[in-house]
């Protein structure tokens, strides 16, 4: 897991950007530990294309020592002719997707992400995870 030193800096903010014809909905969750099933705080879900600004984590409270996950769920509501074209649209997401953190010692900090796509449902989920210290 990536580590970002945020110390006592507040607020820590998130920004997600992506260029795709799919409809993306992004979610941000804070967990006390990596093993927690449920988050203790979350950011209101948003479409990063329609709402591209910075969003505060945990209402601006300190988040040092917590685990932060950003997930974006994509659904393609357009005609995609075949799996080959679908994979190309996923490449477009991989190339353009950016989840950034503002407020740490590295700011803005671009989070790494993992992508899983599902042709049968024309969906895709991108997940980024970081440990704040």
């Amino acid at each position: 897991m990536d580590v970002l030193n945020v110390g006592n800096n507040v607020p820590i903010k998130l920004k997600v950007s992506v260029q795709t014809q799919a409809i993306p909905v992004s979610y941000g969750f804070l967990y006390n530990t990596e093993a927690d099933e449920n988050p203790y705080s979350s950011i209101a879900p948003f479409d990063p294309i329609q709402n591209p600004g910075w969003k505060s984590l945990d209402k601006g409270n300190p988040v040092g020592g917590k685990v932060f996950r950003v997930l974006t769920f994509f659904r393609f509501f357009n005609t995609i002719p075949n799996e080959q074209a679908f994979n190309l649209t996923i490449e477009q997401i991989e190339d353009s997707y950016k989840a950034e953190i503002k407020g740490g010692n590295q700011s803005p900090y671009k989070m790494n992400n993992s992508v899983e796509s599902f042709f049968s449902s024309k969906t895709c989920i991108v997940e980024s995870e970081v440990q704040f210290i």
Partner: peptide, 25 residues
């Protein structure tokens, strides 16, 4: 669509730390 994905069960599923991405989907 965005309203549905922002409310109810979807954020709970997405935020579940014990599910894989495939299970969430």
């Amino acid at each position: 669509y965005v309203h549905f994905m922002s409310n109810g069960a979807v954020p709970v599923i997405i935020g579940n730390g014990s599910m894989s991405l495939e299970e969430k989907n």
